[in-house]
Computed example of a mutant assay.
Amino acid sequence: MHPLKRPACRPTITFTLTTLLWLACALPAMGADQPVGITAELPYLDVKHEGRVIRIERNPDNLNMIDPDLALTSRACPPFCIQPVVIAPGVETLGELEVLDYLKRISTGDKSVLLIDSREPEWLQRFGMIPGSISLSWTHLHPQHTPVEKIAETVEDLLGAYRVGPLWNFADARTLVLYCNGAWCGQSPTSIRQLLGMGYPAHKIKWYRSGIQGWKLLGLTTVQPRSP
């Protein structure tokens, strides 16, 4: 062969049809009996949700996959833009295990903590919600969608703050853990910014950035909301 002439490159077929058929049969058997705990020490967590006990655990099927609607990577931005890791100074960003720690407190009767699903109702019906959370749409805290006096009632009655004349006292206000659809969702960030604007202490606001997408990506339990 001439030293300057190289042979044409040909693609290498990695998987033959026989190999693919073998994988299709073998993978379910390989993954069928592998345990799926939350952590090595925590197989599940029982929490109270709307008057009933719900067991939060990971889907036991090793080959379970996330809902196709949550697998979309390129939603239009705006409005579905990537959110920062730190949503505001002093607001802690949480992962799943930290959310579960707060759910443990809630399930044992700790009234000082509230897990809030900030999404609009149609998203809850579509993807479900985290057991132990309550629905408080971002629109209920936004003055363009809800009268200011109604927002104030929600902050007093649900979140535990109270007014002294024109001023707010947040000494006994609850610690809030807010979430929405995921890192591309602006609904919980909007609620957080509204609360901070009212003077709600940043250290009493936590944010689960991964939201329902991250929750389901790990195969964790969700529940459907009650019908309106």
Rank of each mutant, 00 (worst) to 15 (best):
E98I: 01
R119D: 00
I54L: 10
Q144N: 15
P201Q: 02
W184T: 10
V85I: 13
A171L: 09
D69K: 12
Y208W: 07
T14K: 14
L220K: 11
E98S: 07
I66E: 09
D110Y: 08
P89C: 08
L159F: 10
A88P: 00
G186I: 00
D172K: 14
H142M: 13
P3E: 09
D117R: 05
E153C: 11
Q144C: 05
T16A: 09
M198N: 03
D69Q: 11
I151L: 06
M129P: 00
R6Y: 13
G211Y: 04
I205V: 13
T146E: 15
P189W: 08
R193S: 14
P201N: 02
R174G: 03
T146G: 04
T146F: 01
I151K: 09
Y44Q: 11
P131F: 08
P228I: 07
A40T: 11
T16F: 06
T146S: 11
Q83P: 06
L178T: 12
L176K: 01
M129T: 07
L178G: 00
S188H: 10
A71P: 02
Q83K: 11
Q224K: 15
E153T: 13
A76Q: 08
S133V: 05
D110P: 02
S74N: 15
H203Q: 13
G31L: 12
T73I: 06
M65E: 14
P201D: 05
W123R: 13
L196Y: 05
I82E: 10
C180N: 01
W168F: 06
M198G: 03
L21S: 14
L218G: 07
V177G: 04
R6H: 08
I212K: 00
T12Y: 09
T12A: 09
I82H: 09
M198Y: 03
L115S: 03
R226W: 07
L218A: 15
P28D: 05
D110N: 15
R58T: 11
I56C: 03
W138D: 01
L4I: 10
D157L: 15
Y162G: 02
D46G: 08
L42V: 14
E41W: 08
T16G: 09
G51D: 02
R119A: 06
H49C: 12
P131Y: 09
A173C: 09
Q34N: 03
E153D: 15
V99H: 04
D61H: 02
P35K: 03
G182L: 01
W215A: 00
I151W: 00
W184I: 08
D69V: 09
E120C: 06
G132L: 02
T73E: 12
T222H: 04
T19H: 13
G186R: 08
I56V: 12
L103N: 05
F15W: 13
I106A: 11
I106C: 10
P189M: 06
T108A: 14
Q187I: 05
T190Y: 03
W123L: 10
P7N: 11
H142Y: 14
M1N: 07
E122C: 07
E122L: 13
L159D: 01
M65V: 14
L103T: 04
G160E: 01
S118R: 01
L195S: 05
G197Q: 01
I87F: 05
K104S: 12
D172C: 08
A152V: 07
R226E: 14
A29M: 07
G219T: 07
K150F: 03
I66T: 10
H203P: 02
H2P: 14
